[in-house]
Design a protein around this nucleic acid. Structure first.
Lengths: 359, 359
DNA sequence: TTGTAAGCGTTATCAC
DNA sequence: GTGATAACGCTTACAA
């Protein structure tokens, strides 16, 4: 039977009394604001440590009572529905943090247009914000802004895509390579006999999207590390075009040439396009794995055409992103530099717990 | 481009001014403390609503500065390692909430001894606590305490096992039935040819553990609902005894009698006992699914003997349990009555994200 | 029935 | 360099 430490919280006042100085002095020491004699400084520091002083975040936030303006640069969900979730997460966090003075302004750009990204980022006057959350899906274009923000001392948090240059306050998101590796496991588990697995890249500029290649590499490495290259051929394919019809045409051809295809791993959130074909043609015996719990995918997950979806908790990315900034600004907690969100394996049977309102 | 609402938070003082009364009166109205004229009451209420007043939780918690004593009734992790995680979760939450005056006293009992449970619960003087978190794994024995606590007005939160009688403040945990259903899916996906699936109950008094039966039922229903009863036989077995040796002996017999066993679903956290046998005997072609990320299971997950573990986020159960009480007591937020935690599917390849320090 | 004022722990602004 | 003191928004004695 263990009891939590019952002693009252140590306050600045306690330190002050013990050090025979005023609270103001203690505060200056604790915050390194200078203008304090060296011996006093050391004494206060020592006592603070002895007493294991922990600031009362409540009181701090209360007195600061400053409002913080955050900017969130998010791709347009009406163009790519995937981004609805991070947006929801941002708004959820905003709602919860409003009482701490957090206000979020959203800057929405076209995820398929690097220009739109730049233009939107240009309208964001960094001097007007205390922190920035951004999905830097265009690497080259992002760098310049990072440099500016760093210079101006505006902290920024990355989500979805990691760009370590210029040291963001934090990165929140996925481990692409490992998710591909996981997809390898899931397809192999479901289809152990000899066969071919297709890695389908759909509707993205592969050259500019290194995370898709990471996924592919992880997938290949699964079979490589398990010495399965002989039995299981991996066949990466770039599907051109963004319509179901275009994908269907190319897929038909692939399947004709490779009748021994046992599984398909879609590296983007477009698994529904493959599923549409498989379902319509009543193709059996091909396992299908994709990413992301978007509406269209869920439909095929529920009717059994898609076996698994790997979920990157996109809502959580937006949510924790805003929280990371708030923790930094309001509570002055320090953040870990990287937070990888779990690779959730979603199937029809456990889906409900991942789309519940408050996740 | 959408901007968060910029207006300053409405304070009690604002309402008071508008209603031409003092803050004290507003406070009394808002907290239903009576002693206030009816017309004033209505006026204040109306204005509060108009202004969309939301109390500043920070300030409230700060001034209350009351310490809350919570009791946590948890099974002994040194007897069943599973309980280490909820215990960790409780302690993590305690650490974070200490500054809000939350103190937790742990009451540890033997999970295999209903008597120990009762004795431990007896030592818990409910009048000394402001809230109770409990894993009520003994149904009959729990009821009496619930009744007492309800009577004394001490809020209690359940985790791991749901007992809706006497309306706990909240239940946090798993959906047993659905997890069995999920296990059915996973085994079937990995082994589609004709065969037998064993449902293994290990080391628990089945009659007293209705959740094990719920798991079994969910598992069976998966095959039933997919019209697979003809191809896939489900064979429930109660393994007697708690040692690996005992389990191995019984398992050997089962496998001899049923050479067509394609998968085993262990309804407890003891999958490692089955795995130990399969691994030692180098049995191939049997998929194995169990519960819970305990040390022994992880070993066999990592060497590939266990294919999947279903994780109920046990740490989260302890963590959210304490938080639920804190939200209620400190912040006076209202809780939802049930929080089902996701059924996480864990495999070797995504394990790392679920055992990371801060999950 | 209502108003006033002290105080929660921290920060920030003064005056010394 | 240092110490007093007023705020932040809310609760709660206590006074009126």
């Amino acid at each position: 039977m263990k009891t939590g430490n019952a002693d009252r919280m140590v306050r600045i006042k306690d330190i002050a009394e013990k050090a025979k100085v005023s609270t103001g002095t203690v505060d200056r020491v604790l915050h390194d604001r200078g203008r304090v004699a060296d011996d006093v400084r050391l004494r206060v520091l020592k006592i603070a440590k002895e007493l294991n002083y922990k600031p009362n975040l409540l009181a701090r936030a209360l007195v600061k009572n400053k409002s913080f303006r955050l900017a969130a640069l998010i791709p347009d969900p009406s163009i790519d529905g995937y981004w609805q979730s991070p947006k929801d997460g941002v708004e959820k966090a905003e709602g919860e943090l409003k009482q701490y003075g957090i206000m979020v302004t959203q800057f929405i750009f076209d995820p398929f247009d690097a220009n739109s990204f730049s233009k939107t980022a240009d309208t964001l006057d960094a001097t007007k914000f205390d922190g920035i959350l951004i999905a830097p899906i265009f690497y080259r274009q992002s760098l310049g802004y990072f440099r500016q923000w760093k210079q101006k001392g505006v902290p920024f948090v990355l989500f979805n895509t990691h760009i370590p240059d210029y040291e963001p306050l934090m990165y929140i998101g996925q481990d692409s390579y490992q998710s591909g590796f996981l997809a390898g496991k899931l397809l192999h588990y479901g289809s152990k006999e000899k066969g071919t697995f297709v890695v389908a890249h759909i509707g993205e500029d592969i050259q500019n999207s290194s995370h898709l290649l990471h996924k592919e590499q992880g997938f290949k490495d699964y079979f490589f590390q398990h010495h399965l290259e002989k039995e299981h051929q991996v066949l990466p394919i770039d599907f051109q075009g963004n319509s179901s019809a275009a994908v269907a045409g190319q897929l038909e051809e692939v399947l004709q040439k490779n009748p021994q295809v046992k599984g398909i791993f879609v590296t983007t959130s477009k698994a529904n396009m493959i599923a549409e074909y498989l379902h319509r043609k009543k193709v059996e015996g091909i396992c299908l794995i994709g990413y992301d719990l978007i509406e269209k995918n869920l439909h095929y997950l529920e009717n059994g055409t898609i076996d698994f979806l790997i979920n990157q908790n996109p809502k959580g990315q937006g949510y924790y992103g805003i929280y990371a900034l708030a923790d930094h600004l309001v509570f002055q907690k320090k953040n870990q530099p990287i937070k990888y969100l779990p690779l959730d394996i979603i199937t029809k049977e456990n889906l409900q717990y991942y789309i519940d309102a408050d996740n």
